[in-house]
């Protein structure tokens, strides 16, 4: 009877796990099934490379893919040096008190709601960008990626920091014994040792910025056009989903959001595979 109970318990715990796996697959299948009418007859390629012009029956989401890429890569480009600097400051360079303070602030920043970054961005950052560049409305790639950089930095800093702190103490002692200054220790010992963690932090935050909706939706202006400069207004895949869903859901235009969903799902899977790859490299 006891054995029977043990078996049942394992089963009861197994089912929710299985259910969660099925959920992961179901999301993919739903996107595929709902988006199918637009992709039939090998038109998937056309869909992701074509331009957007519903009047002519063209529902290509290439401009949105470009917009997403532009905002995500620019935000990582801004956030990376900032995060490297902050992580170095916290792990090595700052005096203990300030380091603890910064560490807690960064942790707390991960809890700030995205919509607040967007809200303040509209009324604080966008006017500044508009005045500074005297070009358009201020709702552009630059505004969105600056705000997004601030959003992803805490995650990046935390990952960097943890990988800096994992460097074996004996290595640091060796550097100290050779008379190395803190900066030398950082540049020649800690950063090379923490390469894996740095890669993981960058990939992880890339994933976050590809998937973020609110900042791009509120700050990037949402114009459907292939971006030419950082001051252009673009629409990301995520913002496209949020905006089109307001229209009626029988049209072909509407079906394009599922293609966006699929692409985002694909990006995410790619990010996870890359993270796994980097992780396995490090343990070998």
């Amino acid at each position: 009877m006891n054995r029977q109970f043990e078996k049942t318990a394992e089963m009861v715990l197994f089912l929710p796990a299985l259910l969660s796996v099925i959920l992961t697959l179901a999301i993919f299948v739903f996107m595929l099934v709902f988006g199918l009418p637009l992709m039939k007859g090998g038109r998937f390629f056309e869909l992701i490379t074509g331009s957007w012009s519903p009047g002519h029956g063209m529902y290509g989401i290439q401009p949105m893919i470009m917009g997403t890429m532009a905002i995500a890569s620019l935000s990582v480009f801004f956030a990376f040096p900032l995060s490297m600097g902050c992580a170095s400051l916290i792990s090595v360079l700052a005096p203990r008190g300030f380091s603890t303070f910064l560490r807690h602030t960064v942790r707390l920043m991960t809890g700030v709601p995205t919509v607040i970054y967007g809200f303040v961005g509209i009324f604080l950052l966008v006017p500044i960008i508009r005045e500074l560049f005297q070009n358009g409305s201020g709702f552009c790639i630059l505004s969105a990626s600056l705000m997004l950089a601030l959003l992803i930095s805490p995650t990046m800093i935390l990952v960097f920091m943890e990988s800096f702190d994992r460097v074996p103490k004996s290595y640091l002692d060796a550097a100290d014994a050779l008379g190395g200054t803190p900066v030398q220790k950082l540049v020649y010992v800690i950063i090379p040792q923490a390469r894996q963690g740095i890669w993981m932090g960058v990939i992880l935050s890339m994933g976050r910025s590809l998937g973020d909706t609110l900042i791009a939706l509120m700050l990037a202006g949402n114009a459907i056009a292939t971006p030419g400069s950082v001051l252009d207004s673009v629409r990301t895949l995520t913002a496209h989903i949020a905006l089109v869903i307001a229209s009626d859901y029988e049209s072909l235009e509407f079906k394009s959001v599922f293609a966006c969903g699929l692409i985002l799902y694909g990006f995410n899977a790619l990010i996870i595979v890359m993270l796994r790859y980097v992780e396995s490299k490090g343990t070998q």
Binding site: A17, T24, G211, T213, T238, I241, V257, F258, N268
Partner: peptide, 27 residues
């Protein structure tokens, strides 16, 4: 291995895609 990979994917899915999934369930 398979389960933890799929949980990683699930954790990374952008929230707007989860929302779209919820919306299509409603439809």
């Amino acid at each position: 291995r398979v389960f933890s990979f799929s949980f990683d994917i699930l954790a990374g899915i952008p929230s707007i895609v989860i929302g779209l999934f919820g919306f299509s369930i409603a439809v």
